[in-house]
């Protein structure tokens, strides 16, 4: 891949001229990248991002075998609570969605629903090689090969399976990116909603839910 920023491994085509963007620009996004954002708002955004980064609530939803590596994070040995992270059982209260391992087509539908129900800003962590290129299940008839076609991924954690230490490293990388204002996958999702929806609907043939799940 030529994308050096590693934020968004797949870049969808630019929206056509004259199309109205779906998402308004948030002051917390694009720190330092936008000269039109006043300095005061940028300082405020830095504070907001610090709060967001230090209180990541992870959605407790495991899609595949990788979720077995998430459980040790709450135990005494790894203890993710010292970073302010906690497991939340409902998408309404979570900020981070972890796609843990292989993702079945059937699960993808539920994952999209959950992702869209989460309040913004929200982040997606792809865990394990299955989310990156299909992993060892690349030729299975019902698992997806590339997560970033369907959801905006902020951080990938490679491995099959990555150990809990790798997860913690990935999370601290995510925190860094949030503090710098670089983890804007959710914004990217809204900006390119049509592209993502097209990909999703190509795969989910029995689309029986609203186009966007509030």
């Amino acid at each position: 891949m030529t994308d050096t920023k590693r934020t968004l491994p797949v870049l969808p085509p630019a929206p056509p001229e004259g199309a109205t963007p779906h998402a308004p620009v948030d002051d917390a996004c694009f720190l330092g990248e936008r000269p039109d954002v006043p300095k005061l708002r940028e300082a405020l955004a830095t504070i907001k991002n610090w709060f967001r980064a230090n209180s990541l609530w992870v959605m407790a939803y495991g899609t595949g075998c990788g979720s077995i590596e998430l459980r040790p994070l709450t135990t005494a040995r790894f203890d993710m609570e010292r970073f302010g992270m906690a497991m939340r059982p409902t998408p309404r209260q979570s900020n981070v969605l972890i796609i843990s391992g292989y993702l079945a087509t059937k699960s993808l539908k539920r994952v999209i629903r959950s992702y869209e129900q989460m309040p913004a800003p929200k982040w997606v962590v792809g865990l394990g090689s299955c989310t990156i290129n299909g992993g060892m299940y690349w030729d299975s008839y019902n698992t997806i090969n590339r997560l970033d076609l369907y959801l905006p991924v902020d951080v990938y954690i490679a491995g099959c399976m990555p150990r809990p230490e790798a997860l913690l490293a990935g999370f601290s990388y995510l925190m860094e990116r949030i503090k710098k204002g670089e983890a804007n996958g959710w914004h990217h999702y809204l900006e390119n909603l049509d592209w993502y929806k097209e990909n999703q609907k190509k795969l989910i043939t029995d689309w029986d839910m609203p186009d966007y799940n509030w």
Binding site: N133, N145, R146
Partner: peptide
């Protein structure tokens, strides 16, 4: 299954 995957699930270039 491989043919089905190639038709439905695009795989990442370079794999």
């Amino acid at each position: 299954t491989v043919e089905y995957m190639n038709a439905h699930h695009p795989s990442r270039p370079g794999r």
